[in-house]
Amino acid sequence: MDLTSTLITGAGSWNPLAWILGIVVAAIIAWLIYSVGEKGYKPGTAQTEPFISGNPEPEKGMVHVRSGNLYWGYLEALKGYYARLVPLHTGDLHDYVLWYLGITALFLVLVVISA
């Protein structure tokens, strides 16, 4: 492959062009498998309905899963972490300044002690 594209990463190397070649090969194989499948469908029959169980199709706006409903489980599992982290972002300017001054003071102590 083109040597200018290879990235030496210390433990090994990585070549995106070789990787893309692999992707293309995989895509061709996938297409070959796809192309031996069922070719068409009959319009106007039950084949075009979204639910094979015969339920009616809901409104367009109702189908879309809104972002507020995504990752509910993740947020629920990490509730303890978020309950502590989110309230720190108070939006109060005093807290912003205090964090900054506090970090400065902490770094000052650590750097002076270690020097």
């Binding site: 989110v86 309230p87 972002h89 108070t90 939006g91 109060d92 300017l93 005093h94």
Partner: peptide, 10 residues
Amino acid sequence: DIEMIRRLKE
């Protein structure tokens, strides 16, 4: 008042 100016948070 700074405590009133916090519409941006979290």
